[in-house]
Design a protein around this nucleic acid. Structure first.
Lengths: 131, 131
DNA sequence: CTGTATCCGCATAGATACTG
DNA sequence: CAGTATCTATGCGGATACAG
Protein backbone atom coordinates (compact mmCIF):
# COMPACT_ATOMS: atom_id res chain seq x y z
CA UNK A 1 0.00 0.00 0.00
CA UNK A 2 1.58 3.23 -1.02
CA UNK A 3 1.57 6.07 1.40
CA UNK A 4 0.33 8.39 -1.26
CA UNK A 5 -3.10 7.07 -0.69
CA UNK A 6 -5.58 9.85 -0.39
CA UNK A 7 -8.00 8.92 2.27
CA UNK A 8 -11.19 8.63 0.45
CA UNK A 9 -13.89 6.85 2.31
CA UNK A 10 -14.66 4.10 -0.04
CA UNK A 11 -15.85 6.33 -2.68
CA UNK A 12 -13.97 8.23 -5.11
CA UNK A 13 -14.32 11.83 -4.88
CA UNK A 14 -15.04 12.93 -8.29
CA UNK A 15 -17.30 15.80 -8.88
CA UNK A 16 -19.63 13.29 -10.36
CA UNK A 17 -22.51 11.88 -8.44
CA UNK A 18 -21.49 8.29 -8.84
CA UNK A 19 -19.24 7.03 -6.13
CA UNK A 20 -20.94 3.67 -6.00
CA UNK A 21 -20.01 2.36 -2.58
CA UNK A 22 -20.42 -1.31 -1.80
CA UNK A 23 -23.47 -0.38 0.12
CA UNK A 24 -25.11 0.99 -2.98
CA UNK A 25 -24.10 -1.95 -5.07
CA UNK A 26 -25.75 -4.39 -2.77
CA UNK A 27 -28.77 -2.18 -2.53
CA UNK A 28 -29.10 -1.62 -6.25
CA UNK A 29 -32.60 -2.79 -7.03
CA UNK A 30 -31.84 -3.64 -10.61
CA UNK A 31 -28.81 -5.69 -9.77
CA UNK A 32 -30.78 -7.38 -7.09
CA UNK A 33 -33.67 -8.16 -9.41
CA UNK A 34 -31.31 -9.49 -12.04
CA UNK A 35 -29.67 -11.75 -9.55
CA UNK A 36 -33.10 -13.13 -8.74
CA UNK A 37 -34.63 -13.72 -12.12
CA UNK A 38 -31.50 -13.48 -14.23
CA UNK A 39 -30.80 -17.17 -14.04
CA UNK A 40 -31.34 -19.72 -16.74
CA UNK A 41 -34.97 -20.64 -16.14
CA UNK A 42 -36.75 -18.13 -13.90
CA UNK A 43 -37.72 -15.67 -16.55
CA UNK A 44 -38.89 -18.40 -18.85
CA UNK A 45 -41.16 -19.75 -16.15
CA UNK A 46 -42.51 -16.30 -15.36
CA UNK A 47 -43.31 -15.64 -19.00
CA UNK A 48 -44.91 -19.03 -19.34
CA UNK A 49 -47.05 -18.58 -16.25
CA UNK A 50 -47.98 -15.16 -17.59
CA UNK A 51 -50.26 -16.91 -20.01
CA UNK A 52 -52.01 -19.27 -17.64
CA UNK A 53 -51.54 -21.53 -14.67
CA UNK A 54 -49.46 -24.63 -15.11
CA UNK A 55 -49.03 -27.85 -13.23
CA UNK A 56 -45.62 -29.16 -12.30
CA UNK A 57 -45.19 -31.82 -14.90
CA UNK A 58 -46.81 -29.59 -17.42
CA UNK A 59 -44.03 -27.07 -16.90
CA UNK A 60 -41.49 -29.82 -16.89
CA UNK A 61 -42.64 -30.98 -20.28
CA UNK A 62 -43.13 -27.47 -21.64
CA UNK A 63 -39.63 -26.34 -20.88
CA UNK A 64 -37.56 -28.98 -22.50
CA UNK A 65 -34.10 -29.25 -21.11
CA UNK A 66 -34.87 -28.35 -17.52
CA UNK A 67 -34.24 -30.95 -14.86
CA UNK A 68 -36.63 -31.66 -12.03
CA UNK A 69 -34.17 -30.30 -9.57
CA UNK A 70 -33.74 -27.04 -11.43
CA UNK A 71 -37.45 -26.62 -12.07
CA UNK A 72 -38.24 -27.17 -8.43
CA UNK A 73 -35.49 -24.81 -7.31
CA UNK A 74 -36.62 -22.16 -9.74
CA UNK A 75 -40.23 -22.44 -8.67
CA UNK A 76 -39.32 -22.37 -4.98
CA UNK A 77 -37.24 -19.27 -5.42
CA UNK A 78 -39.88 -17.50 -7.45
CA UNK A 79 -42.44 -18.47 -4.86
CA UNK A 80 -40.20 -17.27 -2.10
CA UNK A 81 -39.73 -13.95 -3.83
CA UNK A 82 -43.45 -13.55 -4.23
CA UNK A 83 -43.65 -13.87 -7.99
CA UNK A 84 -45.30 -17.26 -8.13
CA UNK A 85 -48.07 -18.87 -6.15
CA UNK A 86 -48.19 -22.58 -5.45
CA UNK A 87 -51.51 -24.30 -4.87
CA UNK A 88 -51.78 -27.89 -3.84
CA UNK A 89 -54.86 -29.93 -4.57
CA UNK A 90 -54.93 -33.01 -2.36
CA UNK A 91 -56.47 -35.19 -5.01
CA UNK A 92 -55.45 -38.63 -6.11
CA UNK A 93 -53.10 -38.47 -7.75
CA UNK A 94 -51.97 -35.16 -6.26
CA UNK A 95 -51.79 -32.11 -8.41
CA UNK A 96 -50.00 -28.84 -7.84
CA UNK A 97 -50.77 -25.74 -9.76
CA UNK A 98 -48.44 -22.82 -10.26
CA UNK A 99 -49.58 -19.34 -11.19
CA UNK A 100 -48.37 -15.78 -11.18
CA UNK A 101 -49.08 -13.53 -8.22
CA UNK A 102 -50.08 -9.91 -8.85
CA UNK A 103 -46.47 -9.02 -8.24
CA UNK A 104 -45.40 -11.52 -10.83
CA UNK A 105 -47.89 -10.13 -13.30
CA UNK A 106 -46.71 -6.60 -12.71
CA UNK A 107 -43.20 -7.69 -13.52
CA UNK A 108 -44.27 -8.69 -16.98
CA UNK A 109 -44.70 -5.06 -18.00
CA UNK A 110 -41.16 -3.72 -17.57
CA UNK A 111 -39.92 -7.09 -18.71
CA UNK A 112 -41.79 -6.63 -21.95
CA UNK A 113 -40.11 -3.28 -22.51
CA UNK A 114 -36.77 -4.93 -22.14
CA UNK A 115 -37.91 -7.77 -24.36
CA UNK A 116 -38.91 -5.32 -27.06
CA UNK A 117 -35.55 -3.68 -26.92
CA UNK A 118 -33.84 -7.04 -27.10
CA UNK A 119 -35.89 -8.07 -30.08
CA UNK A 120 -35.45 -4.75 -31.84
CA UNK A 121 -31.72 -4.87 -31.42
CA UNK A 122 -31.48 -8.57 -32.01
CA UNK A 123 -28.85 -10.52 -30.16
CA UNK A 124 -25.50 -8.91 -30.86
CA UNK A 125 -24.11 -12.40 -30.59
CA UNK A 126 -23.36 -13.26 -34.14
CA UNK A 127 -24.56 -10.02 -35.62
CA UNK A 128 -21.58 -8.27 -34.21
CA UNK A 129 -20.43 -4.91 -35.42
CA UNK A 130 -19.82 -5.35 -39.07
CA UNK A 131 -16.90 -3.10 -38.75
CA UNK B 1 -38.69 -37.77 -31.45
CA UNK B 2 -42.22 -37.81 -30.23
CA UNK B 3 -44.67 -37.43 -33.04
CA UNK B 4 -47.09 -35.55 -30.83
CA UNK B 5 -44.80 -32.57 -30.83
CA UNK B 6 -46.54 -29.54 -32.24
CA UNK B 7 -44.23 -27.10 -33.86
CA UNK B 8 -44.59 -23.70 -32.21
CA UNK B 9 -42.74 -20.90 -33.88
CA UNK B 10 -42.97 -18.42 -31.06
CA UNK B 11 -40.54 -17.80 -28.28
CA UNK B 12 -43.21 -17.02 -25.85
CA UNK B 13 -45.70 -19.58 -26.64
CA UNK B 14 -49.33 -19.16 -26.76
CA UNK B 15 -52.34 -20.41 -24.99
CA UNK B 16 -51.88 -24.08 -24.93
CA UNK B 17 -49.33 -26.60 -23.93
CA UNK B 18 -46.39 -24.97 -25.55
CA UNK B 19 -43.40 -27.19 -26.06
CA UNK B 20 -40.80 -24.44 -25.82
CA UNK B 21 -38.06 -26.32 -27.58
CA UNK B 22 -34.45 -25.86 -26.64
CA UNK B 23 -34.00 -24.03 -29.86
CA UNK B 24 -36.47 -21.37 -28.82
CA UNK B 25 -35.01 -21.05 -25.36
CA UNK B 26 -31.60 -20.26 -26.73
CA UNK B 27 -33.14 -17.80 -29.13
CA UNK B 28 -35.14 -15.95 -26.48
CA UNK B 29 -33.85 -12.39 -26.70
CA UNK B 30 -34.61 -11.55 -23.11
CA UNK B 31 -32.91 -14.61 -21.74
CA UNK B 32 -30.01 -13.91 -24.00
CA UNK B 33 -29.73 -10.31 -22.90
CA UNK B 34 -29.93 -11.32 -19.27
CA UNK B 35 -27.18 -13.81 -19.71
CA UNK B 36 -25.04 -11.03 -21.10
CA UNK B 37 -25.56 -8.20 -18.68
CA UNK B 38 -27.10 -10.16 -15.84
CA UNK B 39 -23.81 -10.80 -14.14
CA UNK B 40 -22.46 -9.08 -11.08
CA UNK B 41 -20.83 -5.99 -12.60
CA UNK B 42 -21.93 -5.43 -16.19
CA UNK B 43 -25.05 -3.48 -15.46
CA UNK B 44 -23.28 -1.37 -12.90
CA UNK B 45 -20.61 -0.45 -15.40
CA UNK B 46 -23.20 0.38 -18.05
CA UNK B 47 -25.07 2.63 -15.66
CA UNK B 48 -21.85 4.30 -14.58
CA UNK B 49 -20.72 4.89 -18.15
CA UNK B 50 -24.17 6.24 -18.84
CA UNK B 51 -23.14 9.33 -16.95
CA UNK B 52 -19.81 9.97 -18.64
CA UNK B 53 -16.67 8.34 -19.96
CA UNK B 54 -14.36 6.69 -17.48
CA UNK B 55 -10.78 5.57 -17.50
CA UNK B 56 -9.82 2.10 -16.36
CA UNK B 57 -8.50 2.87 -12.92
CA UNK B 58 -11.24 5.39 -12.48
CA UNK B 59 -13.77 2.62 -12.86
CA UNK B 60 -11.70 0.36 -10.68
CA UNK B 61 -11.78 2.86 -7.87
CA UNK B 62 -15.38 3.87 -8.46
CA UNK B 63 -16.71 0.38 -8.18
CA UNK B 64 -15.22 -0.73 -4.96
CA UNK B 65 -15.09 -4.44 -4.55
CA UNK B 66 -14.39 -5.33 -8.15
CA UNK B 67 -11.10 -7.01 -8.98
CA UNK B 68 -8.98 -6.10 -11.95
CA UNK B 69 -9.70 -9.43 -13.49
CA UNK B 70 -13.43 -9.02 -13.20
CA UNK B 71 -13.44 -5.42 -14.35
CA UNK B 72 -11.39 -6.28 -17.40
CA UNK B 73 -13.56 -9.29 -18.17
CA UNK B 74 -16.70 -7.25 -17.81
CA UNK B 75 -15.41 -4.45 -20.00
CA UNK B 76 -14.19 -6.87 -22.65
CA UNK B 77 -17.54 -8.61 -22.79
CA UNK B 78 -19.47 -5.37 -22.94
CA UNK B 79 -17.17 -4.16 -25.67
CA UNK B 80 -17.53 -7.42 -27.53
CA UNK B 81 -21.30 -7.14 -27.34
CA UNK B 82 -21.21 -3.61 -28.65
CA UNK B 83 -22.35 -1.80 -25.53
CA UNK B 84 -19.07 -0.19 -24.63
CA UNK B 85 -16.38 1.50 -26.65
CA UNK B 86 -12.71 1.35 -25.73
CA UNK B 87 -10.37 4.13 -26.76
CA UNK B 88 -6.66 3.93 -26.20
CA UNK B 89 -4.56 7.04 -25.95
CA UNK B 90 -0.90 6.15 -26.45
CA UNK B 91 0.35 8.69 -24.01
CA UNK B 92 2.87 8.26 -21.24
CA UNK B 93 1.66 6.88 -19.05
CA UNK B 94 -0.95 5.21 -21.24
CA UNK B 95 -4.60 5.95 -20.69
CA UNK B 96 -7.67 4.06 -21.83
CA UNK B 97 -11.08 5.58 -21.88
CA UNK B 98 -14.31 3.65 -21.80
CA UNK B 99 -17.62 5.04 -22.95
CA UNK B 100 -21.05 3.84 -23.98
CA UNK B 101 -21.85 3.20 -27.63
CA UNK B 102 -25.20 4.33 -29.03
CA UNK B 103 -26.38 0.77 -28.47
CA UNK B 104 -25.29 0.97 -24.88
CA UNK B 105 -27.08 4.26 -24.42
CA UNK B 106 -30.27 2.89 -25.93
CA UNK B 107 -30.16 0.07 -23.43
CA UNK B 108 -30.41 2.52 -20.57
CA UNK B 109 -34.02 3.29 -21.43
CA UNK B 110 -35.67 -0.12 -20.96
CA UNK B 111 -33.25 -0.72 -18.14
CA UNK B 112 -34.62 2.33 -16.38
CA UNK B 113 -38.14 1.00 -16.71
CA UNK B 114 -37.07 -2.17 -15.00
CA UNK B 115 -35.19 -0.16 -12.42
CA UNK B 116 -38.28 1.85 -11.63
CA UNK B 117 -40.26 -1.30 -11.14
CA UNK B 118 -37.59 -2.71 -8.91
CA UNK B 119 -37.49 0.44 -6.83
CA UNK B 120 -41.25 0.73 -6.64
CA UNK B 121 -41.60 -2.84 -5.47
CA UNK B 122 -38.51 -2.72 -3.31
CA UNK B 123 -36.46 -5.84 -2.97
CA UNK B 124 -38.68 -8.60 -1.69
CA UNK B 125 -35.57 -9.84 0.02
CA UNK B 126 -35.86 -8.56 3.50
CA UNK B 127 -38.98 -6.52 3.03
CA UNK B 128 -40.84 -9.68 2.36
CA UNK B 129 -44.60 -9.79 2.68
CA UNK B 130 -45.35 -9.53 6.35
CA UNK B 131 -42.48 -11.66 7.17
C1' DC C 1 -1.47 3.21 -15.86
C1' DT C 2 -3.58 -0.77 -17.91
C1' DG C 3 -3.82 -4.73 -18.13
C1' DT C 4 -2.63 -10.45 -18.27
C1' DA C 5 -1.74 -15.12 -15.97
C1' DT C 6 -2.54 -18.46 -12.51
C1' DC C 7 -4.68 -20.61 -8.72
C1' DC C 8 -8.51 -21.38 -5.78
C1' DG C 9 -13.15 -21.32 -3.42
C1' DC C 10 -17.95 -21.24 -3.95
C1' DA C 11 -22.29 -21.21 -6.01
C1' DT C 12 -24.91 -22.77 -9.84
C1' DA C 13 -26.60 -26.23 -12.85
C1' DG C 14 -27.22 -30.93 -14.52
C1' DA C 15 -27.68 -36.20 -14.22
C1' DT C 16 -29.47 -39.82 -11.80
C1' DA C 17 -31.86 -42.35 -8.36
C1' DC C 18 -35.27 -42.69 -5.03
C1' DT C 19 -39.78 -41.40 -2.34
C1' DG C 20 -44.67 -39.85 -0.60
C1' DC D 1 -47.92 -36.80 -10.04
C1' DA D 2 -44.71 -34.10 -7.61
C1' DG D 3 -41.17 -33.81 -5.70
C1' DT D 4 -36.26 -34.84 -2.67
C1' DA D 5 -31.35 -36.52 -2.21
C1' DT D 6 -26.77 -37.06 -3.77
C1' DC D 7 -22.96 -36.53 -6.64
C1' DT D 8 -20.44 -34.18 -9.94
C1' DA D 9 -19.07 -30.72 -13.58
C1' DT D 10 -18.60 -26.22 -14.94
C1' DG D 11 -18.21 -21.43 -14.53
C1' DC D 12 -18.20 -17.23 -11.97
C1' DG D 13 -15.85 -14.44 -9.04
C1' DG D 14 -11.84 -13.17 -6.14
C1' DA D 15 -6.76 -12.90 -4.63
C1' DT D 16 -2.28 -12.49 -5.96
C1' DA D 17 1.61 -11.97 -8.91
C1' DC D 18 3.57 -10.32 -12.93
C1' DA D 19 4.08 -7.57 -17.52
C1' DG D 20 3.94 -3.89 -21.35
Amino acid sequence: MSGTNTDMPAVIAHELPSPVPLDEIAACPVTDLFRRIGDKWSMLVVILLGKRAYRYNELHRSIEGVSQRMLTRTLRTLEDDGFVRREVYPSVPPSVEYSLTPLGVSLLAPLSALAEWAVANASPTSSGPTA
